[in-house]
Structures are given as C-alpha cells and as structure tokens.
Design a protein around this nucleic acid. Structure first.
Length: 268
DNA sequence: CTTTCAGCCTGACGGC
DNA sequence: TGCCGTCAGGCTGAAA
C-alpha cells in the first residue's frame, strides 16, 4: 500500500533510468483505472525527452517539454523498471517503452490508481495543501486551520487540504508518538500539542523515506516488493496487542471509515 | 461552509 | 475443498 514514502522511493528509483529519454511506445493493457487511461500517447509527447520525475503529495509527475503525465498508485499500485524479456504479470496494466531501452511497468490489482496526460495543469493538484516535509507545514498551520473544527484530529490531518501525504498508517503512528487521542476534536487541541504532532508527522515520514532508500536497489533490479517499515510501527495494525509505551492493550475504533489504533492510557 | 459516506476494486482471510 | 462474507484503503463527488 503505497504511502508517501513509497511513492518517493519509487520516484528516486526510476528517475535516473528514464530522465533524458523519450517515450517511444505506450501500451495500455487495461485502461480501467480510476479514470480511463488514454489508449494513445498524446501527439505532443512525441520526440520529447522526459525532463524530470517529480512528486506532489502521492502523485508522480512525469514532466516533458510541453506537458506531463500524472500517475497515482492508489491502494495497490507499483511502478517498476522491468526486463523486457520478463513476461507481463497479471495486473500489469500499463507499459512505457523508452528510447534508451528502459521499460516501465505499472502494476495495480485494485485499479484505484490513475494515469492522466495534460499539456496544462492537472486539476487533481489544484486544492492540495503543503508537503509535510516542507517548511510551509508546521504546528502553527495545524493549530490555525483547526480552530472551531469539530472533526476528529485523525481525519483532519489525513485531509489533503490540511497537509498532503499523511495516510492511515502514518497518521496513526504520528498521533501515537505525539500522545494525542485520534478521536479528539481537532479544534480542542492546543498549539503546543500541534507543534509536537507536526514534528512527529515529519519524523515518521522522513524515517520511512530513509528506510525506503534501502529498498532502492531491489527496486531497480525488480526483485520484489520488500517489507520495509512494518516491523517498526508502534500502533498501526497492532490492535489488541500491548502498547509499547505502557503495556495496556491497544484499542481500535473506526474514524472516517478507517481503522484506527491507539492507547487509551498514553493518548489523551 | 463543514462533515459524512458510498463507491471504486481485488486479494487475503476466517468460518462453515 | 471451495464458497461466501468481510475487510483493507486513497480519493472523489454528492448528500446532509
């Protein structure tokens, strides 16, 4: 399940192999992603080398001279450089062939992702809040934007208008580390505690990206998914297990239709 | 405006 | 063994 750190790891893994080369062929084996994937490469991409692979929130942007492709990995997507001789797997929906021989395969069993081309701005990016690891995001912003809000703090920090890229795993972890109950109304949390929460969001995401970096070599070789960060999670996926802080059993509830784990003693 | 929620989709897993 | 129900979750768009 690609969260921001996995998307960033993907970006770093593939970019050096394809930047500077042209897409010579696009093969769409199954166009039925979140939005239909265009069957043809847009005419304006022809002969244009890829300038850069950027990331905004959990989106990847493949920037060309005249426009860009916007990719999202959804819940179950992955993007990898493949050996052209290796057979296409089930759910390998898209293939991009580059002039330098690189072959990029998009794999997504649940098909929640997307691949959209645009010469101009992508509307999906229009209303996004700041990047969590940038200077624009801090506790002050969380505090300011949360005043008079009744929504629970967990869905508040998972809202892309507040800050982007904080998915269920890292929201759960950051709230645990900051000692804040996930169901507390966003508007009732102090400035000082939001300061702490912002720091924990940054810390947990940065640590996960660092871990992702170690899977980079596997990635390029196409050796498989890698278990990355899971062993280091304190709360996510551990409902009913002892709290790593106090030993009490971790509680579970659903917030905004998402499973949430927290410690009733350590989080207030 | 804010908040909530259905729906998209497949694979994993538990119960029978 | 296989079938059926449930769950997982990011994001959009619509309803309340």
């Amino acid at each position: 399940m690609p969260e921001l750190p996995e998307v960033e790891t993907t970006r770093r893994g593939i970019a050096p192999h394809i930047v500077g080369s042209c897409v010579t062929e696009l093969r769409v084996h199954n166009p039925a992603l979140r939005w239909p994937v265009p069957a043809e490469l847009p005419a304006w991409v022809a002969g244009q080398p890829l300038h850069s692979v950027a990331r905004r929130a959990k989106y990847l942007l493949f920037n060309f001279e005249r426009g860009s492709a916007l990719l999202h990995l959804g819940m179950s997507g992955s993007l990898r450089l493949a050996d052209p001789a290796s057979p296409r797997r089930t759910h390998d929906h898209l293939e991009w062939q580059f002039a330098n021989g690189a072959l990029l395969r998009y794999h997504d069993p649940r098909r929640f992702g997307c691949c959209l081309w645009s010469e101009g701005a992508h509307p999906q990016l229009a209303a996004l809040g700041p990047e969590p690891l940038g200077d624009e995001f801090d506790g002050e912003r969380l505090w300011q934007r949360s005043r008079r809000r009744t929504v629970a703090v967990k869905p508040f920090i998972m809202d892309n208008a507040t800050v982007v890229g904080v998915g269920n795993i890292y929201a759960t972890e950051a709230l645990f580390n900051a000692g804040i109950r996930p169901d507390r109304a966003a508007g009732t949390i102090s400035r000082a505690r939001y300061q702490r929460l912002a720091e924990e969001i940054k810390r947990v995401l940065a640590a996960a990206i660092e871990q992702g970096g170690t899977t980079l070599r596997d990635f390029v070789n196409g050796n498989g998914e890698s278990g990355y960060f899971a062993q280091q999670l304190s709360a996510y996926g551990r409902g009913g297990e002892p709290c790593p802080g106090c030993g009490a059993l971790l509680s579970e509830l659903r917030l905004g239709q998402r499973s949430t784990v927290f410690c009733k003693r350590c989080q207030r």
